[in-house]
Design a protein around this nucleic acid. Structure first.
Lengths: 104, 104
DNA sequence: TATACCGGTTTGCAACACAAACCAGTTTGT
DNA sequence: ACAAACTGGTTTGTGTTGCAAACCGGTATA
């Protein structure tokens, strides 16, 4: 039983760090709920600074967990973000792993 | 509902980083199950390197989440670790917060 | 007397989360 | 018309920290 335990929990050491970071977990959790959100919406709902938000979005984009689509609304720029299937899968997997550790 | 959501999840940004770190979450999870464990037991069950294990234990000790009691068994040193009440409380609180986010 | 092990700790470094400074463009004030 | 302030972000600088490797005092082995 102790062996079973340690094997079940050791997965923690390989958990997805991209998602595990609290700010990004917050972002992907929000995005998984609303499908689509722009920079300013994420800025106010998360309370992150602009710099932080920008860099976390970039990191998630590099991981191909989300896409940022840049456009103009009238004359002001607008960035809208959406999770990719890979991002949704990564979040689902993370939830499952963490659920096993903290939960039941 | 979106407001309720964002408020519920924003706590993520203040989550306890001491516990949140995977290696330490693994350690406190194990310790919460077995009450007491020595360095070598933790070394083999976690698969951490000695250096890593040592520094994470030190960090948890500084946070007063665990105590390390050093003694000698015959002529070889032995370090046994046990969670403090504060440590148990911190883990319980962490589980609750993360459970709320990942949805159990 | 080396040599290798034991039970750890300390050191060195690359990664990174964060905030502050910055930037191109637009609107507002005078 | 010109400057100042605002908008929607990005880039830069820095302190922290997670990690592995080197190290350390002691003990058993050859």
């Amino acid at each position: 039983m102790e062996n079973a335990m340690s094997e079940a929990y050791q997965g923690l050491l390989e958990i997805d760090r991209i998602i595990h970071e609290p700010a990004r977990l917050l972002l992907v959790t929000i995005l998984s709920a609303v499908q689509e959100a722009d920079f300013l919406y994420l800025l106010t709902t998360t309370g992150l600074t602009k710099g932080n938000l920008s860099s976390h979005l970039t990191r998630l984009e590099q991981a191909e967990y989300l896409v940022q689509e840049k456009s103009f609304v009238g004359k002001t720029p607008r960035t809208v973000c959406r999770l990719t299937p890979a991002g949704q899968a990564a979040l689902a997997s993370y939830r499952q792993q963490m659920g096993a550790v903290i939960g039941e």
